[in-house]
Design a protein around this nucleic acid. Sequence first.
DNA 1: TCATGTGAACATGTTCACAGCT
DNA 2: AGCTGTGAACATGTTCACATGA
Lengths: 248, 248
Amino acid sequence: MTRQAGGENNAGSAVAAAAPDLGRTRSRAIPEATVGRLAVYLRVLTDPQAVRPALGDRGDGVRVVSSAELAAAAGVNPAGLRRDLSFLGSHGVRGVGYDVDTLIEQIQRVLGAHHHFRVALVGIGNLGQALAGYAGFGGRGFGIGALFDVDVEKIGRTVAGLRIRDLADAQEVCPAEGITIGVITTPEGAAQSAADALVTAGIFSILNFAPGKIVVPAGVEVRRVDLALELQMLAFHETSRVDGVVAR
Amino acid sequence: MTRQAGGENNAGSAVAAAAPDLGRTRSRAIPEATVGRLAVYLRVLTDPQAVRPALGDRGDGVRVVSSAELAAAAGVNPAGLRRDLSFLGSHGVRGVGYDVDTLIEQIQRVLGAHHHFRVALVGIGNLGQALAGYAGFGGRGFGIGALFDVDVEKIGRTVAGLRIRDLADAQEVCPAEGITIGVITTPEGAAQSAADALVTAGIFSILNFAPGKIVVPAGVEVRRVDLALELQMLAFHETSRVDGVVAR
DNA sequence: TCATGTGAACATGTTCACAGCT
DNA sequence: AGCTGTGAACATGTTCACATGA
């Protein structure tokens, strides 16, 4: 985990694949690890300056990429990449590779990346403000739909063009604004009540930056990003490295 | 599965380019997943208001905790917790549980949490500034030792009490300040050169917030936190949820 | 009695190697 | 010839169940 993934953080089971319309799609469940990598492939494929000679561009209009090329660009093993793509029902062409545009289309379909998702930020401190202004969010199909806090000092102020609203109003604001994803950037002690408010507002997908665990009903997906934990894993690496390299 | 109580992170999860573990510690090599959870246990054990009646506190001065209690507080499986602790060479007492203070001491030892680590931030934009002021960093044995950027507009300005310095000076600044961990919060395009500068400055542990992969020499550990990727995995969840529950 | 520590079953994820298709 | 798709081996991680020992 990434494992990122700490204390059971972001490890998980396969999830039912979106089962779209067109004839040939067998809806196997897509493993979580594969979903994460599909997002990476999509970024590489759609990045204009992805790889030196615009990825897989041949002279004619058709862009084709081999698993070896794309794997190198994404930093993964080619066989694993082919396995990942096989979950798309994708048809690469043997001896040739994958049609880039088709690939983009198919990955976008299963990831829901042709939708636009609106996100609510709860807890507008340092981190919340940074995320509100973070280009990486708006840039890839996600937009900030609302900012919430419980601090009366903050409510009403404007950050990144949005007025901070009372978390107590989430239940009205989120449905009205079409918000489906919540991001918690509160201090640790406020995270659970933030989650409760989001769940009450009909949110089923939460990204939690607060340390500690939050409890949510079944069916609500929580992904955790624990910055202190990432540092601690690096500290472990430093400790091992020094202990191992220097005298023992 | 509901992450968090159920976590890719980052790990899980994500596609971090890291050198294979050259198992280093005196006893057994500690699995990465276990390291992440040990950090979580440590947080729970040292949190003053961790669990209802201060964790495992009996009337006398000795605090004892069972795997079941601690596992519940940390949101993990008790058997897995016991296996994790077995890597410490820890000796719980059968029929009783674990001595809390001993446990804290042992986890701190393997994580290097009794050291203080100094961190350099590279790329002082929105996110970098937020992290510079983030309490969660200084709070757990990590301190910001330097801020770097390449933008002459930013160099010399002060953020969170530290003057932003030229990344070109990293090679002198990092050793002088005792910095051993680097955090990259640059835009995507600048991440590789940021990593190069850190490596040249003698840094072996890097936390990378920029999307895309960075290439580092063997022996340098890179952990990646990809915010857009986390959102995309939630978007996949939303897509599956909606497609699965609503009419098809 | 009761909770630890761990063998063994299970689940997930990664990589190899090659058959099979274009 | 060359690259995909996938069975099978391998690696890692999780959970069960119970023998063991305080």
